[in-house]
């Protein structure tokens, strides 16, 4: 489902070059639930950004669903991000001016879908995270856990094959964190969604099928 071969990513300033990923190769199969762990600055977010096609490696190849991507331009990458990948961010990144339902509909705005169908799919996604009663609320009227559930609904509304969660429980207390983990596991089991999650929480990582550990931009295992 996701393959990175010999991925190298480095950042340059006028005086220093920092290598964020150094010859990283990973292969994540369809339907896998994988967590990425490592200390701060080890390259977890860079790896997630490359998998999510938000960033490009300096060297190496990326395959998403057998499609080699790294040479694609922004215009060609946008529909792949839209159809195949869903993002869940640590700080939710909901648009406060839009209602819960309008936030969830956002990825569908960039597809040729009627407004009626968009609404139906958004309600269906909201149902999966058990927040039907909050459809017309605005993000700032919800708790942190509820906001993250809305963010998950937004990530899955387009039925992507891959869900990328960047510390999805990082801003939540343990009870809410567990609720979110339960939803992610459910999506992985029932919908066969491939999930890649960055986490600092060893306990939550242990509940995933595989842990990818990074240190100084290199794989440990």
């Amino acid at each position: 489902m996701i393959k990175i071969e010999s991925g190298i990513k480095s950042y340059h300033t006028d005086t220093i070059q920092t290598t964020a990923l150094n010859d990283v190769s990973i292969h994540i199969k369809k339907g896998e639930f994988v967590s990425i762990m490592g200390p701060s600055g080890c390259g977890k977010s860079t790896l997630m950004n490359i998998i999510g096609l938000l960033d490009k490696p300096c060297k190496g190849q990326i395959y998403i669903d057998e499609q080699r991507i790294e040479s694609y331009n922004d215009k060609s990458i946008a529909p792949i991000r839209n159809e195949k990948i869903g993002f869940v961010f640590q700080s939710f990144h909901l648009i406060n001016d839009l209602s819960v339902l309008d936030n969830i509909e956002l990825p569908l705005l960039y597809r040729k879908i009627s407004a009626k169908e968009r609404r139906r799919l958004a309600l269906e996604a909201l149902d999966k995270v058990s927040l039907n009663a909050r459809a017309k609320h605005f993000p700032n009227q919800l708790s942190g856990g509820q906001q993250q559930r809305v963010a998950i609904a937004r990530a899955i509304v387009g039925k992507p094959k891959i869900l990328l969660a960047d510390e999805p429980t990082g801003n939540l207390d343990s009870a809410m964190g567990n609720e979110i983990m339960a939803i992610l596991h459910d999506l992985n089991k029932k919908d066969d969604t491939t999930i890649v999650m960055v986490t600092h929480d060893d306990e939550k990582a242990q509940r995933t099928e595989r842990i990818i550990r990074l240190f100084d931009g290199q794989l440990l295992n």
Partner: peptide, 16 residues
């Protein structure tokens, strides 16, 4: 900027 980042992450093209 956060809204723009989210929109781009979810597949918005520059033209959108």
């Amino acid at each position: 900027s956060s809204e723009i980042g989210v929109r781009k992450s979810f597949g918005a093209r520059s033209s959108h």
